[in-house]
Amino acid sequence: MSDPTKTPGAISIRHVDKVYDPEGVHVEAMRDCTFDISAGEFAIVVGPSGCGKTTLLNAIAGFDTITGGEIYLDGELISSTRHQIKPNVDRMVVFQNGALFPWKTVIENITYGPLVQGKMNKAEAYARAREMLDLVCLNGMENKYPEELSSGVQRRVEILRALINQPRVVMLDEPFRGLDAVAKTVMHEFLMQLFCATRRTMFFITHDLDEAIFLGHKVVILTTRPAMVKKVVTVELPWPREHKVMNSKDYLDLKGEVLEAVHEEARKAFEAGEREMA
């Protein structure tokens, strides 16, 4: 990987607003949302369903515009009302429902980025991809098609497909949703191992509070729609973490703190939902 002492990937989200369909339905998804993620940090974003987490991710990725505020990546403006940088390899996204290309094999999927950008030739890209597959014990899978793999393996391949590009930020939108608890623990260890090996900034959206505290340096809790930052909880548990940390008092205290904040917002979201239904 590149110079380990100076990792890029600091994200600064400044007073971001997002209103969908301002003249029509006027749905306010984000209001004055402000927080920072330092370079090489594992940041977790939690919040009630439909609160605007994915909206924020889309804005950072360059898939969607914002209606107020600015987003910076390493000091460079990437999104504002007047300025929108297109999606790029420096901001990789791993999608909620998986977005591997079913017509490509595992290794073709992983090498798609470097090859389509012309950054590596085929031999280099394949060698690099094999190295990564070896690292996470997925060697032997390279010629399989995504639909032949379990959803857990699909997610791992998709994460490798993102990381091979050495992005400044990896954004994961509930990547382990739908996996069972046992598979999840394996995935967490996998992700932590990759994170330690690559030290890319992580922007990780989840609903699972254990996942949030176990993986994150920092948990950003968003309010119910419109999304604002409710609370930022710093997780000062030593790295790399093992699953037994989940029984420690520090961990449980942190979880209590996060749970309380999330629960408050969940209740608000629930009540708002009741009102909307009425």
């Binding site: 999606p87 901001r91 990789m92 429902n97 977005a99 290309f101 798609y112 389509v116 590009n165």
Partner: peptide, 26 residues
């Protein structure tokens, strides 16, 4: 799926790549 197209853009695909490598095989 929209996600496949977005993923391809993130991975550095240009519109012509999207056509030949995503829309056509898809």
């Amino acid at each position: 799926s929209l996600n496949q197209k977005l993923a391809a853009y993130s991975l550095g695909a240009k519109p012509k790549d999207i056509f030949w490598r995503i829309l056509l095989p898809g």
